[in-house]
Design a protein around this nucleic acid. Structure first.
Length: 285
DNA sequence: CCGGACTCCTGTGCGC
DNA sequence: TGCGCACAGGAGTCCG
């Protein structure tokens, strides 16, 4: 399940392959994974909205969303949902799974050519087209909170002070913090020794500071490991991530806490499976 | 207005 | 051994 580290690593792996390259054409297998955000385009050329005939100028990320900007100004905002993948396959290369490919871009970069595939079996992800970066920022990214990778304790404290929700629910809310999903919420709360059911606005300032630091360092370590591959996730080259071997909380119910040695527990918080150490993680509020 | 609950979807893994 | 069901979850939507 791609969260911020997976999308950031994906962005970094795709950058050398895509930036500066030319999109010769686009192949759409399932239209319903694409949302054409400006009505002007939905009646006209689908290909143009999907950047056909333009050059890729830049990749950008906010939270779990990846933007592919073309030199023509238009762009794609891609979110991977649960099972989404963006994989570049050079001509002659092989793709591990060829089912559920919903959209593909024909890429030319100098003498080399290949296909960029958007694959998403569960279809929780999708592609949105935007006329400009400005529109993306105004229509879509404006609803996202600050990026979790660089979250400052003060910013986090500000949002948390305004809600009585369980802290885990707040961390998962993309309007509070952009980029954290179930895995890294559990990891960050464990690292900061905070119980996920703690009342957000009841957290002491020191705990919020510890939490902001834990979020940043957990995400940075995960990016360094190439993200977490539980099942499907791969980077732009089809390589898996190795952060799963470093996970201390997520998926470790019944196993010993790496700090105190007592058994980790599983519970439900905000409709999400949650793993904690009941001994190490303090409940506030 | 806020927050909790429900919904979408398919591959996997477990229990009978 | 095989079948069927529960489960996984990001985020939009709906409802109290």
């Amino acid at each position: 399940m791609p969260e911020l580290p997976e999308v950031e690593h994906l962005k970094r792996s795709l950058q050398p392959l895509l930036v500066g390259s030319y999109i010769e054409r686009v192949r759409v297998a399932r239209r319903d994974v694409i949302q054409f955000s400006d009505t002007q385009v939905s009646t006209g050329s689908t290909n143009k909205a999907l950047l056909s005939g333009t050059r890729i100028a830049e990749l950008d990320r906010r939270g779990k969303q990846l933007a592919v900007l073309s030199n023509a100004g238009r762009l794609l905002c891609i979110h991977l949902g649960m099972s989404g993948q963006l994989v570049y396959v050079p001509d002659g290369g092989m793709l591990k799974h060829t089912s559920h490919i919903h959209c593909s871009w024909r890429i030319r970069s100098g003498a080399s050519t290949g296909w960029l595939h958007f694959r998403d079996p569960r279809r929780f992800g999708g592609i949105r087209t935007f006329a400009s970066h400005e529109v993306l920022l105004k229509l879509r990214w404006a609803t996202l909170g600050p990026d979790a990778l660089t979250i400052a304790a003060k910013q986090l404290a500000g949002s948390l002070s305004r809600t009585a929700r369980p802290i885990k629910a707040a961390l998962l809310d993309q309007a509070v913090l952009a980029g954290v999903g179930n895995i890294y919420a559990d990891e960050s709360l464990y690292a900061a020794r905070i119980h996920p059911c703690s009342i957000s606005c009841a957290l002491p300032a020191a705990s919020v500071t510890a939490l902001a630091r834990a979020v940043r360092s957990t995400l940075r370590r995960a990016i360094r490991a190439g993200g977490s591959t539980l099942r499907d996730y791969t980077d732009g080259n089809g390589e898996q991530g190795w952060f799963t071997v470093q996970l201390r909380a997520y998926g470790r119910a019944g196993q010993p806490c790496s700090s105190c040695g007592k058994a980790m527990h599983q519970l439900q918080v905000a409709q999400r499976t949650t793993t904690i150490c009941p001994h190490c993680q303090i409940h506030y509020g």
